[in-house]
Design a protein around this nucleic acid. Structure first.
Lengths: 233, 233
DNA sequence: GAACACATAATTGTATACAATACAAGAAGA
DNA sequence: TCTTCTTGTATTGTATACAATTATGTGTTC
């Protein structure tokens, strides 16, 4: 983890919030990956603050389950287990379709325009070979829909679930199914624009199921690759 | 807020977690009410630690929306707005019925026994005129069901929603509808014991709707009682 | 060469000191 | 009397210092 990996352009006034946001963005964009050690001194130097402030950010991120803090062992970027991964997507499948339905009822033309801008940015990021940013924007699309639905509490839940999904994708994504969404978001926006609640809910549900099944969440010999296999390569 | 209000029996080793838990319990049991100032020095003295540790607990509680921290203004017990109150219960109505269904599928005899113990304790607390404790146990009943459903992520959401409900009840409960649940929890346990998923889901939904409507969530002249009225008493 | 013990370094946990901000009371002026 | 300014006090924000714990590396023994 280098200075340039984490520092966007923040020469002045780093508060605990801005640091948490910067780290969160770096995690979203896969610039730092699950398991990465987040040393307090290191971060303190990078952002030009004392450990006090850094600790506050790390604690904040640990409440979002983006960072795993263990007593006397420090903080690392979280590595969701298979169980957690399933749970996160099941939670999303429970929350987001209904939320998309509400969003379809409430979406204004300016909401639609914003979502379309997001999609365009996402495609642009893909074209410029910046998959991390594309992934971040793809998540933003989901949190934005939650915001449109005007249910702040649920939107907050979805936001954390989307963030955790980013970790899960980093760990369990299988490249084979690279055909991914591409049109799913477009279709969703269309349903929202048409105030077609039924369709919005259905599209969101199937979109999430697609995502879920595009992950390699089979049971695996986790943490003990039998040693023989691992060394026989 | 006195020593005895917050200190259960903790003469040694108060960590940030134990303090957060103690405060959370006090909030649950309505021993400290929305709006109460939580001064850092005060808490530090009460629990015999430095402000560093206290700050960590308060930040933790603020992530759960039990405490409201404002920069340079300190921490107070949160006072959910009417909007927030509605949102919390709508979120519960979305999450908990489905969770109760899962719990009905998975509940073991020992789970049922535990739930029945909770109900008995709750009644005992009511008999000994300890409504705060009864309220806490009533919330515990809901989080316990979420735990049985074996969906840790959703259970975590429900836990925070239940906690926030405690604040909402402190602010908006109307005594008139004191007939409250009493049997609702019993009926739910029965449905869980019978593995009657349909029934469990339906009962949980109607139970939550009852709770929601037992609140006085009408629009009110919030935060500006016109000054004349306030002073004419 | 492997396993252990010990010393040393690095890192985190907690307390304290200082700086910055907000709040309250009182003084000066209109 | 009311307004406004000033000053003092209390409280929070941040940095630093020290304590406790963990990680590392070296030598020793088998």
């Amino acid at each position: 983890m280098t200075r340039t990996t984490l520092l966007p352009a923040m020469q002045n006034a780093a508060t605990s919030d801005t640091i948490a946001q910067a780290l969160s963005l770096a995690i979203h964009e896969h610039r730092i990956t699950p398991g990465t050690k987040l040393g307090e001194d290191e971060l303190a130097e990078i952002y030009g603050v004392s450990r006090t402030v850094v600790r506050a950010s790390l604690q904040s991120l640990s409440h979002l389950k983006l960072v795993d803090i263990r007593r006397n062992k420090g903080a690392r970027v979280a590595s969701p287990s298979l169980t957690e991964a399933h749970e996160v997507f099941e939670a999303r499948e429970l929350l987001e379709p209904r939320t998309a339905r509400s969003a379809a009822k409430l979406a204004t033309p300016s909401d639609i325009a914003l979502l379309e801008r997001h999609i365009n940015e996402e495609h642009a990021a893909l074209d410029t070979a910046d998959p991390g940013r594309a992934l971040y924007l793809s998540g933003l699309f989901h949190t934005e829909i939650a915001r449109i639905a005007n249910q702040g509490t649920i939107a907050g839940f979805i936001e954390t679930l989307v963030a955790r999904s980013s970790l899960i994708i980093a760990l369990y994504w299988r490249r084979e199914s690279a055909l991914c969404e591409k049109h799913a978001h477009h279709a969703l926006v269309r349903a929202l624009a048409d105030h077609d609640e039924e369709q919005a809910e259905a599209l969101m549900r199937s979109h999430l199921v697609d995502l879920h099944s595009a992950l390699d969440l089979r049971e695996r010999n986790s943490r003990a690759p039998s040693l023989k296999e691992a060394l026989s390569q």
